[in-house]
């Protein structure tokens, strides 16, 4: 049995999603410029700058990965965070490097 046409409400849902996608598309910056802080920290060799770079990298990886499936989680105490990040590594297939950076960022 076949429902051939798309019903109006389904079309409304499509239209809403389409509109949201279009607005996202329109507002996406066309070229990504590296954040000045990251660039500055990367060229400096002092330990504090190194820490800053790591923190920024960790935060960046957190932003890229940890709100993809569910609402971005808060930081938990370090020994809980270790378990959670290991679990999320297996579940969400984030890379080894991302896991380390995120764990560091989340336990600071």
């Amino acid at each position: 049995m076949k429902v051939r046409t798309l019903n109006s409400l389904v079309l409304v849902a499509f239209a809403m999603i389409g509109l949201a996608v279009a607005s996202a598309w329109a507002t996406t910056p066309k070229k990504s410029t590296p954040a000045p802080a990251v660039a500055a920290a990367a060229t400096s060799s002092s330990g504090a700058a190194q820490d800053d770079t790591m923190r920024l990298e960790g935060e960046k990886r957190f932003r890229a990965n940890c709100a993809r499936c569910h609402a971005a989680p808060p930081k938990f105490p370090p020994r809980m965070m270790g378990t959670i990040v290991r679990h999320m590594r297996v579940r969400s297939l984030i890379t080894d490097e991302e896991m380390r950076l995120i764990l560091r960022y989340m336990t600071e």
């Binding site: 999603i17 949201a20 996608v21 607005s23 996202a24 507002t27 996406t28 910056p29 932003r63 993809r68």
Partner: peptide, 9 residues
Amino acid sequence: QPYSVPLTV
């Protein structure tokens, strides 16, 4: 999940 708007498709 574009960075520019809080949207997930």
